[in-house]
Computed example of a mutant assay.
Amino acid sequence: MTDKPKIEGLLEAALYAEDLDAAERFYGGVLGLEQIARVEERHVFYRVGQMVLLIFNPTQTVLGSTSTQMPVPAHGAHGQGHLCFRASAPQIAAWCDALTAEGVAIEADFHWPNGARSIYFRDPAGNSLELAEPRLWFNQ
């Protein structure tokens, strides 16, 4: 078996939402993420640290690209996706207050067996979002 090149990390992750206006209000307004692109009725993109969060309208991306300059293959998902954002314990506590003030319900708030805290909530499309301490997966 030959050595495989190392994958350095994730560059982007995607969630799907048909109502991009609601997604834009939530991710840009409620979560305060920096928007970097929007194509009406197709997608809205946000910077999250060293990654990009892609919010696609699945009714459009399933058609694929018509651009010969950017021939992105058709893709999409149906149903509720999941994404976890990294945050420190004090940041998670502050997010609980901020989300509640915005009318966003916290579905779960608990500590994992290793002591890391996670909170779960949903975006307007029903995607499950989580804020968790990095020690959930990595020794700190």
Rank of each mutant, 00 (worst) to 15 (best):
T2N: 06
R135W: 06
G81F: 14
A14D: 08
K4Y: 03
A77W: 10
T66F: 05
E102T: 01
N139F: 03
H43P: 00
A77G: 13
R47L: 10
Q50W: 01
T61V: 11
T2D: 05
A14E: 05
N127R: 04
A74M: 10
P113F: 02
G32E: 04
E24F: 00
V30D: 09
F26V: 07
F26S: 07
V72T: 10
A23K: 02
F56P: 11
I106A: 03
G9P: 05
F110N: 05
T2F: 04
A125C: 07
P71C: 11
A17C: 15
D97C: 15
I36L: 13
R86I: 14
I92K: 13
A23P: 06
K6G: 02
R117C: 05
S88F: 14
A23V: 10
E24Y: 02
E40H: 01
V44C: 05
F138I: 06
D3K: 04
E18N: 03
F85L: 11
L83A: 12
A14N: 08
D19P: 13
R42Y: 06
F45Y: 12
H43E: 04
H78P: 02
A17I: 08
H111R: 15
T61K: 04
Y16P: 02
S88M: 15
D19L: 11
S88D: 15
A13R: 01
S118F: 09
I92V: 09
E41W: 02
T100W: 01
A22H: 08
P134Y: 01
D123Q: 10
A22M: 14
N114R: 00
P5T: 10
P124E: 02
S128V: 14
S88T: 15
W112A: 15
R42G: 06
P73V: 10
R122F: 11
D21I: 02
D123N: 07
